[in-house]
Design a protein around this nucleic acid. Structure first.
Lengths: 133, 133
DNA sequence: CTACGAAGTAGAGCCGACTCTAGGTCAAGA
DNA sequence: TCTTGACCTAGAGTCGGCTCTACTTCGTAG
C-alpha cells in the first residue's frame, strides 16, 4: 500500500520473519540504526535501509548476541565516524563467542551422531533377525 | 570423602560444571536415568554411571534440547529394552535441529567475518595514514 | 559446647526476549 | 453506517532454566 516509498510494519514483519511485536520491541530497545519515519496516523514507515539493518540485527540475535550489546553497537554506528575500532572490538568478541559455540555444537553433534549410529545398528539387527525368522 | 564408592553432590558439581542447584533441579525434573542412591543423612551418592549420564544430558542441553524432551528420552531408557526405535527418533530429530542450528550459525559467522574484515581494512587504512603524516 | 561447612527440602525469585492485552485511531469496503 | 483489519501506545504476562532463600540436619574441628 505504501509502494516503493516505504514499508509498513506488517510488511517488514512478513519480510523478516519477526512479529510486529518484536519489531516495536526492537525499536523501543534502540537497536534500529536510525529512527523509523512515521507516516499518516503516526504509522511506522520502514525504508529498505531499515530492513537491511534489521536483517543484520537478526543475524546477531540468531548467533546469540544479547539485545543490550546490539544496542551498544548500534549506538556507536549512530554516533558516526571515529569509533570504528570499538565497533570492531564488539564484532571480534562476538565472532570469538560464535566460534566457540560452533565448536561446542560440533562436539555435541559428534556424540549424537555416534549414538544415532549405535541405535541404527541395533535397530537394524533386530529387524534382520525378525526377517530371518 | 566418599571414596571410590560414590560422589557427593558437591563433587559431581565440580566435575560437571553444573551447580548443586542445577543437579537437584535435574533430578526433580526426572532426567537422571536411575534414581540417585542416598547415603547416611539422606545425602545423594552419585555413581560413575550417574556422572556419565549427566555428561550426556549436558551435551543435549548445550545443543538446545529442552528439558522435557530429555525427560522423554530418559523415560524410554528407564522403561528398558524394546523402545529403541523411539529413542532413535528423538535422537535423529535432535540431530537434524542441531544440523540446522550449525548451518544458521555458519551463516551468521560469514556475515560477521565479512564485517570484521571490512572494519579491519578501514581501521588499518586510518592507522597507515596516521603513520604517513 | 560451639561453630562451620556441606548437605537436605520446599518453594520463591530472576532474567532475557519476546508476546499479549486493553483500549484507541483510522481508512476502505459491503 | 457499520464492520473489519491494520496500525498505535503503555504496560502486563509468559516461558524456560536455572538460582536463590529460608530453614533444618549432620559430622567434624577448635
Amino acid at each position: 500500500m505504501l509502494g516503493h516509498m516505504g514499508l509498513s510494519i506488517g510488511q517488514v514483519a512478513e519480510r523478516t520473519g519477526l512479529s510486529v511485536h518484536a519489531l516495536r520491541f526492537y525499536e523501543k530497545e534502540g537497536i534500529l540504526a536510525h529512527q523509523v519515519h512515521r507516516g499518516p496516523g503516526g504509522r511506522r514507515v520502514y525504508t529498505e535501509q531499515d530492513l537491511a539493518w534489521l536483517r543484520m540485527c537478526i543475524m546477531l540475535r540468531m548467533s546469540g548476541m544479547p539485545v543490550p550489546e546490539i544496542r551498544r553497537y548500534t549506538d556507536l554506528v549512530r554516533q558516526g565516524d571515529g569509533n570504528e575500532p570499538q565497533r570492531l572490538d564488539i564484532l571480534k568478541e562476538h565472532q570469538e563467542r560464535v566460534r566457540q559455540q560452533m565448536a561446542q555444537l560440533q562436539e555435541c553433534m559428534d556424540l549424537i551422531t555416534h549414538k544415532v549410529s549405535m541405535y541404527e545398528d541395533y535397530v537394524n539387527s533386530i529387524d534382520a533377525r525378525a526377517v530371518a525368522q
